[in-house]
Each structure stands twice: as structure tokens, then as C-alpha cells.
Design a binder for these strands. Structure first.
Lengths: 193, 193
DNA sequence: GTCTATAGAAGGATAGAC
DNA sequence: GTCTATCCTTCTATAGAC
């Protein structure tokens, strides 16, 4: 693997954040998983756990957006695009033994009332996602205001579905969310015509 | 205050869980907030933090269900009931400086991959909520299967909206979720007629 | 500049005084 | 049975060897 020490630390942290969250993840566990010496954390991230956490949130938020939007763009229209995203998420959940498909959800809830810098990082990620989805809906003809509202809703359905699916260890919640997502987008597109 | 020591511990823990989650909440902070001696935790909860956590999840999940369903039942029909729930949640968020209105969300994501007993407790709470909402939708004439699917979706919208609202410190996400919830319920009721 | 050893604080848990 | 003092572990962070 040609990954640098810094990259291995970032990737190991992202995975641990999905499983155990920010407070639940220790630096010692991170360096163990990343096969890195302990000091490397402070070499690459002088600000310690907080700086590492912020970089992981922003980086993984960006990568997850690219991943999801690639699935979306692979479909013919927004309705089947959203359907593919939810179907893919259900598959990922089953394949990973219900590891959180979203890299920032646990951290976002944990730090919202306790760490302002990290909270802003998660807010920036959500804003970027809203922009990406909203642009696609608007391009399909949905009014700008409704596009923004609907992009919020799609993210909520996804995050809420992940929470319920992980708790119940079932993808029923994801299927229900996908069903609603498809219906809402179809209704919005109907109003365009 | 006539609350017993055990009740004060439970209430303080619930509040701390909403703010900092399970791993982010220390037993010392709990007894400090509850004005209780440290030993009381192990007196009332011999299983330690895990037992206390499970009781808090089940208890607060039940209380939150009663609270939300009381708001729902105070309205004339499911559409305005759901609308009142989301409007009330937005108001709570603003009034509490964006403390999580849901008592189990942070913990649910934190423990899903790390603590099986607590994970099951959160799953049981979600199942109870689904039953409560589904029964009301079915009573309004919605088919049982669709009632179950829609109750999943309403919880997802609520939880997803809380996550985004807390991260962005804005209730825009809750308003969007409420808008979608009302539309989905109205459409389901239209199909009944 | 890469890594080890350790400091200092906070975590959960327990023993035992009263 | 109510409470205090303490134990042991784990955490983040740092100092310093190499």
C-alpha cells in the first residue's frame, strides 16, 4: 500500500469515527489501526485530536459527497438517482455489518453542543451536500427554493435511516426512506411539468 | 424538589446524554449535576454506567414518546398533528440553545457498533415509536403496511432534522422536514379517500 | 524528523468508614 | 444503606532519545 503515514492515520480515524464516534475513539487505537507511531499524530496534527478530527470530518465529508453524487449521476434522472443511492446504502449497511455509511453522523451529534470548531466543520459538510443535491434538483427543473428544501429532506431521510438501521440491524428503515425519497422527488418533478 | 436521588441521577444523565452522548458523559459529572454522592450510582445501578445508561434510554424513550404523541393527539388530524410536532421541535431547539430534543439519538449512533445491550435498548425504543405512530396512521385509514413505512419516515425526518439543526444552529432543516412530513401524510390520506 | 517513554488528568469502579 | 477516599485503567499530550 503506497499510502503515507498521514493518509493511513486519516483513514483509520475515519473508520473509527464511524464505529465509535469522536469521544469513543482513542488516539492509541488510531495509531494502532494505522500502523503508525504515536508521535506521528502530533507530528502531522500539532493541534492534537481536535485538529485530526476536523481534518477527518472535512475530508471524509467531501469524499462521501463525491461517492454518493457519483451514484446519483450514474442514473438517468433524479428519481432513479435517489433510488440508487438508498439501495446502495442498504447494501453497504449489510455488507459492513451495519457500520455507519455516513462518516460524520456520529461525530456531528456528539460535538454539536461541546466543540464549536468541530460543530462548524460538520455544518460546512452538510451545507456542501445541500448544495450538491440542490444543484442537481434545480438542474432538473425544480424551483430553487423547493430544491433546497428537498435536499435537506433527502439528507434527513438518509441520516435518519442510518440511525434506525444501525440500531435495529435491519434495512427496513432504509427501504422506507428510499420509498419516501423517490415519492417526494417524483412529486416535485410532476409540478415542473 | 421532591425527586428522589435515583430520579435526580436519571434526569441528570438524560440531559448529559443529549448534550455529550454516552461516552462523552462521565459518572462524576452525573453525580455532580444530580447533587448525589458518587456511591449512589452503584447503589441504585449495580451494573454501573451500562445499567444506568440502559435505564435512561428506555425511560427517556418512553417519556419522549408520550410527550410527542400528546402533541400529535392534541391536533384534529394526522396532518396537523405532525405539523405541530415539527413546529414544537423547532421551538424546543431554539429555546434550549440547540440541545438535542431526542433523548436517545446521540447514544443510539454511539453504541450501535460497540455495546449490544444498549443497542437493543435503542432499537426497542424506535420500535415502540413506530408502533405508536403507525397505530395513529392506521386509525386514520392508512393501510397497515404503508402506516409502518410512513412511521419510519416520520422518525427519520425528525432525527435527521435534529442532526442538521444542531450542526447548523438553525431550524431551517426542521421546517423542511415538517413540510415533507405533512405532504407525505396528506398524500397517504388522499389515497384512502 | 521518527519514534518511545512518561507525565498529568480524567475515566469507571470499589472498599470500607460511619 | 449513605457517603468518602482511593484504586487502576485509559485518555490526551509532551519531552526527549535516537
Amino acid at each position: 500500500m503506497p499510502a503515507t503515514t498521514k493518509d493511513r492515520i486519516l483513514e483509520a480515524t475515519e473508520l473509527l469515527f464511524r464505529r465509535y464516534g469522536y469521544t469513543g475513539t482513542g488516539l492509541k487505537q488510531i495509531v494502532a489501526d494505522a500502523n503508525a507511531p504515536f508521535g506521528s499524530v502530533y507530528h502531522f496534527f500539532p493541534g492534537g485530536k481536535a485538529q485530526l478530527g476536523e481534518e477527518v470530518i472535512r475530508r471524509s465529508g467531501r469524499m462521501y459527497e463525491e461517492l454518493v453524487m457519483a451514484v446519483w449521476d450514474g442514473a438517468d434522472d433524479p428519481v432513479s438517482g435517489a433510488g440508487a443511492v438508498f439501495a446502495g446504502a442498504a447494501e453497504v449497511l449489510r455488507a459492513t455489518d451495519y457500520l455507519d455509511p455516513c462518516p460524520i453522523a456520529v461525530v456531528a451529534l456528539e460535538v454539536a453542543s461541546s466543540n464549536e470548531a468541530l460543530r462548524i466543520a460538520t455544518a460546512d459538510v452538510f451545507a456542501s451536500w445541500i448544495g450538491a443535491i440542490g444543484a442537481r434538483l434545480a438542474a432538473a427543473g425544480v424551483a430553487v427554493e423547493e430544491s433546497r428544501r428537498l435536499s435537506h429532506v433527502l439528507i434527513q431521510l438518509l441520516e435518519g435511516a442510518f440511525m434506525m438501521a444501525r440500531a435495529t440491524r435491519s434495512t427496513e428503515a432504509v427501504d422506507a426512506a428510499g420509498h419516501a425519497a423517490v415519492a417526494l422527488i417524483a412529486a416535485a418533478l410532476d409540478r415542473v411539468l
